[in-house]
Amino acid sequence: MSSPTERISSDTGDKRKAVSSWTGLSLVAGRGARRIALALILPLAVIVIWQFAGQGTGNLFGGVLPTPDRVWNAWQIWAFGPTGMGLNPYSGTWLANVLFSAERVGKGFLFAILVGVPVGIAIGWNRIAAGALDPTIQLLRPIPITAWLPFSIAVFGIKDVGAIFLISLGAFFPIVLNTAQGARDVERNLIRASLMMGAGRWTVLRRVVLPASLPSIFTGLRIGLGIGWTAVIVAEMVAVKSGLGYVLWDAYYVGRMDVVIADMVSIGLLGLLSDFVILQIERWVLNWRRLQSYQS
């Protein structure tokens, strides 16, 4: 004679068992959905409050700040409106400007990697390289990217090269510092093991120091890319005539604050997207490390 409570408890027990093979998957999906929902609360709240605060006039702060619906409309025309001669010079130019900026960041960032990673490895690995390069780098590092603007315009003129120079410079420092740190911290016995197995100096660098430094290198890349986005906006505001930074400053001058806000949000989303891309590459490259941290 089993009591009803007993039956119920055994019933749920069975269900739990049947579900258990799915829990792994549904847990991940559920966690992802919850994380996104959690992340959206704050920005949605800000937009709603902002919209209601400006309801009626469509502006805040005495007409300076347009409400979100007006920003959204401005962005739609900016993105999908007809291009050509019209009253709205931004109409239909969003994608082109995004691509201008993204291309500059891409080129500058790539150049920063190509120089920053080898120099960083050299500094972290070789005492002479460290002595010869590190003090100069530490001297140049505190100079903010904005302070380089006059120099960049004077040397490169109002051209793409100037913007790319500033982006490279900005991204270079975090990349070089983090790479050097990673190369310095390589476990001594890994180096010894590779020498014992007959590896030459170059092989040790390529097959041991470089992979062992990759976690630090990726930290540098993420910081560097963020600075790259800062640099591209600064450069475009002053030193070139296209891209999101140029539109930002230009729209401000003609009082198009709706375009200014839409531009700022675009920059934020692009930065987020590019960081996400790096993160995915990191997860793929550093698979071994993910397993390590999962176990510990």
Binding site: N189, L195, M196, R207, R289
Partner: peptide, 30 residues
């Protein structure tokens, strides 16, 4: 150091980014 004197370390000192097989053939490979 050289491959004529093979050293076995206390903490194994394997390359964590290489598989077991890649670790074993590291010496002959380099």
């Amino acid at each position: 150091p050289g491959p004529d004197r093979g050293v076995v370390f206390q903490e194994a000192a394997l390359f964590p980014w290489l598989t077991v097989w890649q670790n074993v053939i590291f010496g002959p490979q380099v």
